[in-house]
Design a protein around this nucleic acid. Structure first.
Lengths: 136, 136
DNA sequence: ACTATGTTCACCATTTTAGTGTACATTTGT
DNA sequence: ACAAATGTACACTAAAATGGTGAACATAGT
């Protein structure tokens, strides 16, 4: 199951995608209207800013806003950032590959084959799901 | 990513599937030959026994053995037992459904739609992967 | 009776999760 | 220039999950 952090990130991003082009939104407003714990949300938004997905403005009438177009942000990168590898086994991970400690020949391993298929289809679905898709 | 426990369970079961019909196998032998930590493996085998997948024999020439035919044990039930729900969000889980705290109308939620598709395709692949498939 | 095995159940160290506390830096309105 | 409203930084914490281990016990075969 996805962590709260990942779920909060998706909810916050979806909302900021709806506000895309309308200027900055207060953390407090975002937290309140989407029912997210504000202090925890701050950490998440900061992380998304460091990823280059969000921008921020300080001071009065400050807040956060989506930097990229909603169609240029997909769920695969969000899940990877907050959840870690998309693969269920590291021997089928693209970004965090580690050789299997059990099997001698990975290409012959049927366990690996199944989990590779699962990773690929999961990744494809996440990658094709942009914020633009989510706010349709 | 799957926990060690789940991975160990899959490795142990695959091996016991290969030995299906050949009588009981010692925990110590299973642990050594598959490079699994024996004491931890004991817990896992016991859990698999309580699920009705494995049987055991006490005393000399005792050990564990697969009770069901390898084609009647699939990865979906193993993953569920050791990992919890297959779904990434509880609002798309079959066995552990919980309504979403964020959206008012789940049928209209696009986040839910994606994760429902991911759950369904993951589940299908896991369910179709029996121990018989793994030892082919 | 003895020995080899599995069984039970409690315990433990480490890591991860889901936050909170406190102080600080920057911008804007007056 | 100053105050107020905002985000920033970084350390800290409580609770749960993970990956085991310890010690005593129960049972079957010889």
């Amino acid at each position: 199951m996805l962590s709260q952090k990942t779920r909060y990130a998706m909810v916050a991003l979806t909302r900021l995608a709806r506000e895309y082009g309308k200027g900055a939104m207060l953390i407090s407003e975002l937290a309140k209207s989407e029912k997210l714990p504000q202090r925890f949300l701050e950490n998440i938004l900061l992380e998304l800013k460091k990823m280059g997905i969000l921008g921020s403005k300080l001071g009065k009438s400050g807040g956060y806003f989506l930097l990229r177009h909603p169609k240029d942000v997909n769920l695969a990168e969000i899940v990877r950032q907050f959840e870690g590898p998309i693969a269920l086994l590291s021997c089928v991970s693209e970004k965090a590959y580690q050789s299997c400690e059990f099997c001698k020949d990975e290409s012959a391993c049927n366990i690996r084959k199944v989990f590779k298929e699962i990773r690929d289809s999961t990744f494809e679905k996440l990658e094709n799901t942009t914020l633009a898709v989510l706010i349709q």
